[in-house]
Simulated scan of single mutants.
Amino acid sequence: MSNVVLLSTRKLPPTYFDQVREDLGDPDITIDVVGWVAPSAWVADKVNTFTLIGPGRMPAAPEPEPAEEPVGEPTDEAPDAVIAPEAVAEPETVVADDATGAPAAAQVADAGPAAEADTAADPGAAADAAAAPAGQPAAAAKPAAKPRPTGAKRVVKAVEWRARKARKVAGKMLPKAIKTSAPVKFLRGHRATSDLGKNYWNRVLSRRDVLATIEQADVVVALDAGAIWAGWNLGQRRASTPVVLGLPAARRELDMMKVHG
């Protein structure tokens, strides 16, 4: 059984790995993936390992389907009686007597006029109490203002603000035809790919688990432009392991191994 390591900087769907096995001509091939971006869905049942070395997190495992409840056979027994809520009498309200022997409810009633007089004396307090939601104070304290930078920090902030403003002005002055031209798009894409490739390779070098996985590979495949730089460096470091670009080249290497092996 052959072991193939895929180097990728793109988001791969789970169905892609079925296509990989079909393109390589071996449904039982072992696939290990070193990805900069997490796959679009759960892939534990599609590959041997998927090592994420870039930002983000792996997708969670799908939740198991709920088991169907068994349906019992009908019986002649009558169902349990259902009691209507209105048929149940509510318990009597118990009012504790105070020290004077008078019920507490009477004291609440006696305090009613005094409370109404206080509310009438201060109608603003009553409005605030009515407007405030339950469980919250009537007047919430305002958050403290963030202190402004001083000294050297103020100078740095001013320089950063002027630099951002200058970039915006320069971007507006540049004609749209130049912004959307093919050479400018190529240069921007090449720069982004170059930065991604270097970051991907540096992260591969810093992970011992990734290097251990690559050492066990029969073929290492760089799937996209972002993984080419890592593939080239791995080819220089491990001459005994073929490192190729794309699945067709990997298929040729595996076929040659079967012929000579």
Rank of each mutant, 00 (worst) to 15 (best):
R10G: 11
Y16R: 09
Q19C: 06
V20D: 06
V20H: 02
R21I: 00
D23H: 15
L24Q: 04
D28H: 07
T30K: 08
A38N: 04
P39A: 05
P39L: 07
P39R: 02
S40I: 00
A41N: 08
K46L: 04
K46N: 05
N48W: 02
T49Y: 04
F50Y: 15
F50K: 02
R57E: 09
R57M: 08
P59Q: 05
P64R: 08
E65R: 09
P66N: 01
E73F: 10
T75L: 11
T75E: 12
A78E: 13
P79Y: 03
E86N: 12
A89I: 01
A89C: 02
V94K: 03
V94N: 01
D97E: 15
D98M: 15
D98R: 14
T100C: 09
T100G: 10
P103T: 14
Q107K: 11
A111F: 07
E116Y: 03
A117Y: 02
A121R: 04
D128M: 15
A130M: 05
A131E: 11
P133V: 11
A134G: 10
G135F: 02
G135L: 04
A140R: 10
A144T: 10
A144I: 03
K146N: 08
P149N: 03
R154L: 13
V155F: 10
V156G: 10
R164L: 09
A166N: 02
V169T: 15
M173T: 13
P175I: 05
K176R: 12
T180I: 10
L187I: 10
L187H: 06
L187V: 09
R188N: 12
R191H: 15
R191T: 12
A192Y: 07
G197R: 03
Y200T: 09
W201S: 10
N202I: 05
V204S: 05
A212D: 12
A212Q: 13
Q216Y: 00
V220E: 00
V221L: 06
D224G: 02
I228S: 07
L234Q: 03
L234E: 04
R238D: 11
A239Y: 07
S240R: 10
T241V: 12
V243H: 00
V243S: 06
A249F: 05
G261Y: 01
